[in-house]
Design a protein around this nucleic acid. Structure first.
Length: 432
RNA sequence: UCCCCGGUAGCUCAAUGGUAGAGUAACCGGCUGUUAACCGGUGUGUUGGAGGUUCGAGUCCUCCCCGGGGAGCCA
């Protein structure tokens, strides 16, 4: 039969197969050894009876250490007593590489501290919850691509090395670029606007970098963002797109990540309710809701975490807040023609996590943008190309950015975004 | 940058200013159906660092280092 993966074992009941993996856990009962072997696709219990193998093999099975790499050959048997319903009666066991002892992580029996686990991230990845989260991440990434590709969006990769800030305010990572200074991108948005003028509907999906000294469970210095941008789209268009998109991703996760969400002990009932429409609140109405909830709120100020939580309240669904004060948003936002003090932007706030999407309609008037660049003390020379987009055939256009890790954290019910990326980068951690 | 919390065995934690401990992991042995197996046995320390108070400091004081949570900012 040859080599098979654990997740396809049941198809091979009665057959003799080979499984290659790592020892996850071991139990013994005298003349029987139970080896739980993990191969990346799942965990299978392998039973080694003293009378079924030669003495050397049985002895070796009793001394395999945790996380040793092993190759076993044996018959697949369906058995109620086995975790997962199928097990392997071992005929041959090869210990490919005996793992050193003690193994640092005892994830099955121990609560470990965050610091310790992060220091051991390269090994922690092997744990069931880490692996489940990373599988969910991979499938969410896939569904993001499927959604936009299915709607005729063109994937367009913006540069990671950039000559200037996209949004003047935020801190950037400096890199040496030959004789010049360059920065790691904090958003591909401005480039996506150029791409939308060429290709109509575009999106980017890749890493972005923020050198902000944020220390919260929702922040990473390196994180992944998907940024669609649509020519001719208005704020309302992009809000509907965002709503449809979030629902698609969540529903797809429910379909394709059942096992993983079970491992993560995620209650999927609230996720099943993620269907259109989402509540749409203007900034001014959101402020009223915050105050009604008894949470402090300064006039014309941006929302902080307590305010965001008050706005979402106990809703299972995300809430969309639109038309924030001009002063608290980026220079490229289009003003609301109904109210000079407001811009045509939207934030999508998810339950428990807060902002997962920020976006809106972009300023398309040349004169207004020129004034904004001056008012925000930005170096005009770095933005000449961006102004060109308004000089040569300007059209209304809109887009948004969605943070992958925050979305994965929300879907998985994980407390922290750092568990939602294989090797998290935070303010005080760049190892391993 | 600011506020709060923490640092003791590999890990998770305990110890009134008075001999630094437990559980767990690891190792050895026992058990033919284990499910975080169980039972018996065997180890484990620069108490984050440097000063200070004291007869005596893991414990009190000062400074520093390293983390964590939050604020600000943002996805």
């Amino acid at each position: 039969m040859g080599v098979v993966y654990v997740n396809e074992l049941k198809q091979h009941a009665g057959k003799t197969v080979t499984v290659r993996g790592w020892l996850f856990n071991k139990r013994s009962a005298g003349k029987l050894h139970f080896l739980q072997i993990r191969d990346g696709s799942g965990v299978v219990q392998c039973v080694i009876g003293k009378k079924d193998v030669d003495e050397k093999t049985f002895e070796a099975a009793g001394h395999v250490t945790q996380e040793s790499s092993v190759v076993v050959e044996g018959e697949v048997r369906l058995d109620e007593r086995a975790p997962g319903g199928a097990e392997i009666s071992v005929k041959k066991l090869e210990v490919h590489s005996l793992a050193a002892q003690p193994y640092p992580i005892a994830i099955q029996t121990h609560e470990h501290g965050v610091d310790f686990l992060m220091e051991q991230r390269h090994l922690w990845l092997r744990g069931p919850k880490s692996a489940a989260t990373l599988r969910v991440r991979a499938r969410v990434a896939q569904s993001i691509r499927d959604f936009f590709n299915g709607k005729g969006f063109i994937l367009c990769d913006p540069p990671i090395l950039t000559p200037a800030a996209c949004e003047g305010t935020t801190t950037l990572f400096n890199v040496e670029y030959f004789e010049e200074k360059a920065y790691l991108t904090q958003s591909g948005q401005l480039y996506m606007e150029a791409a939308a003028m060429a290709l109509g509907k575009v999106y980017s999906f890749g890493p972005t970098f923020r050198a902000e000294k944020s220390k919260t469970r929702r922040h990473l210095t390196e994180f992944w963002m998907v940024e669609p941008e649509v020519a001719w789209a208005t704020l309302d268009d992009i809000m509907s797109l965002a709503e449809e998109f979030v629902c698609f991703v969540v529903q797809r996760a429910l379909e394709t990540c059942k096992e993983e969400l079970k491992v993560l002990e995620r209650d999927t009932k609230p996720l099943e309710k993620i269907v259109p429409p989402f509540a749409r609140l203007s900034y001014d109405d959101a402020c009223k809701k915050v105050k009604a909830a008894g949470v402090e709120m300064k006039d014309e100020d941006d929302f902080g975490t307590p305010q965001e939580m008050a706005i979402v309240g106990d809703s299972d669904k995300p809430v969309m807040v639109h038309r924030y004060p001009t002063a608290v948003k980026a220079f490229y936002m289009k003003r609301d023609p109904q109210n000079e003090q407001r811009v045509l932007c939207v934030d999508v706030l998810a339950p428990g996590i807060g902002e997962i999407i920020g976006g809106g309609q972009r300023a398309d008037d040349l004169k207004y943008l020129e004034d904004q660049i001056v008012a925000n003390k930005l170096p005009r020379s770095a933005f000449e190309w961006y102004l060109d987009l308004r000089k040569y055939g300007s059209v209304p256009h809109s887009g948004f950015g969605l943070g992958l890790e925050r979305t994965v954290a929300w879907i998985c019910g994980n407390e922290h975004v750092r568990e939602c990326i294989p090797f998290p980068r935070t303010i005080y951690r760049i190892y391993p």
